[in-house]
Amino acid sequence: METVEIDIRGQLCPATLLVALKEINARASLLRRGAVKLCFLIDNRDATGTIPESASNMGYAVNVAKQQEGWYRIEVAARL
Protein backbone atom coordinates (compact mmCIF):
# COMPACT_ATOMS: atom_id res chain seq x y z
CA MET A 1 0.00 0.00 0.00
CA GLU A 2 1.32 3.35 -0.89
CA THR A 3 1.63 5.91 1.86
CA VAL A 4 1.29 9.56 0.89
CA GLU A 5 2.75 11.92 3.43
CA ILE A 6 1.29 15.42 3.58
CA ASP A 7 3.05 17.95 5.75
CA ILE A 8 0.64 20.66 6.82
CA ARG A 9 2.54 21.81 9.84
CA GLY A 10 2.41 25.58 10.36
CA GLN A 11 -1.25 25.83 9.29
CA LEU A 12 -4.06 26.58 11.67
CA CYS A 13 -7.35 24.85 12.02
CA PRO A 14 -9.81 24.93 10.30
CA ALA A 15 -7.54 25.50 7.31
CA THR A 16 -5.65 22.41 8.43
CA LEU A 17 -8.87 20.41 8.38
CA LEU A 18 -9.83 21.79 4.99
CA VAL A 19 -6.42 20.92 3.52
CA ALA A 20 -6.71 17.46 5.00
CA LEU A 21 -10.25 16.94 3.72
CA LYS A 22 -9.19 18.19 0.27
CA GLU A 23 -6.39 15.64 0.19
CA ILE A 24 -8.75 12.87 1.36
CA ASN A 25 -11.39 13.85 -1.18
CA ALA A 26 -8.82 13.86 -3.97
CA ARG A 27 -7.88 10.26 -3.23
CA ALA A 28 -11.24 8.99 -2.00
CA SER A 29 -11.52 6.03 -4.36
CA LEU A 30 -7.89 4.98 -3.83
CA LEU A 31 -8.32 5.21 -0.09
CA ARG A 32 -11.56 3.19 -0.10
CA ARG A 33 -9.93 0.51 -2.22
CA GLY A 34 -7.12 0.36 0.27
CA ALA A 35 -4.56 1.26 -2.39
CA VAL A 36 -3.25 4.27 -0.54
CA LYS A 37 -2.80 5.50 2.96
CA LEU A 38 -2.57 9.18 3.89
CA CYS A 39 -0.29 10.41 6.56
CA PHE A 40 -0.78 13.95 7.78
CA LEU A 41 1.92 15.67 9.73
CA ILE A 42 0.35 18.44 11.79
CA ASP A 43 1.29 20.70 14.65
CA ASN A 44 -2.13 22.23 15.24
CA ARG A 45 -3.55 20.60 18.30
CA ASP A 46 -7.18 21.33 17.42
CA ALA A 47 -6.76 19.41 14.23
CA THR A 48 -6.01 16.25 16.16
CA GLY A 49 -9.71 16.33 17.14
CA THR A 50 -11.29 17.57 13.94
CA ILE A 51 -9.41 15.52 11.35
CA PRO A 52 -9.96 12.12 13.01
CA GLU A 53 -13.66 12.83 13.66
CA SER A 54 -14.32 14.00 10.12
CA ALA A 55 -12.38 11.13 8.58
CA SER A 56 -14.13 8.68 10.89
CA ASN A 57 -17.58 10.06 9.90
CA MET A 58 -16.52 9.65 6.30
CA GLY A 59 -15.95 5.96 6.99
CA TYR A 60 -12.14 5.85 7.33
CA ALA A 61 -9.93 4.31 9.94
CA VAL A 62 -7.87 6.97 11.67
CA ASN A 63 -4.87 6.67 13.85
CA VAL A 64 -3.32 9.60 15.71
CA ALA A 65 0.21 9.35 16.99
CA LYS A 66 1.87 12.17 18.88
CA GLN A 67 5.47 12.67 17.91
CA GLN A 68 8.11 13.65 20.41
CA GLU A 69 8.99 16.88 18.62
CA GLY A 70 5.52 18.28 19.48
CA TRP A 71 3.70 17.51 16.27
CA TYR A 72 1.29 14.76 15.30
CA ARG A 73 1.04 12.11 12.78
CA ILE A 74 -2.45 11.24 11.65
CA GLU A 75 -2.92 8.21 9.47
CA VAL A 76 -6.05 7.80 7.40
CA ALA A 77 -6.80 4.56 5.64
CA ALA A 78 -9.65 2.34 4.61
CA ARG A 79 -11.50 0.49 7.38
CA LEU A 80 -10.77 -3.10 7.49
Binding site: P14, L17, S54
Partner: peptide, 9 residues
Protein backbone atom coordinates in the same frame (compact mmCIF):
# COMPACT_ATOMS: atom_id res chain seq x y z
CA UNK B 1 -17.33 23.69 9.17
CA UNK B 2 -19.52 23.62 12.27
CA UNK B 3 -21.58 20.81 10.76
CA UNK B 4 -18.33 19.03 10.14
CA UNK B 5 -17.62 19.49 13.81
CA UNK B 6 -14.85 22.04 13.69
CA UNK B 7 -14.49 25.69 14.64
CA UNK B 8 -15.30 28.53 12.25
CA UNK B 9 -12.62 30.14 10.15
Amino acid sequence: LTVMGTSPL
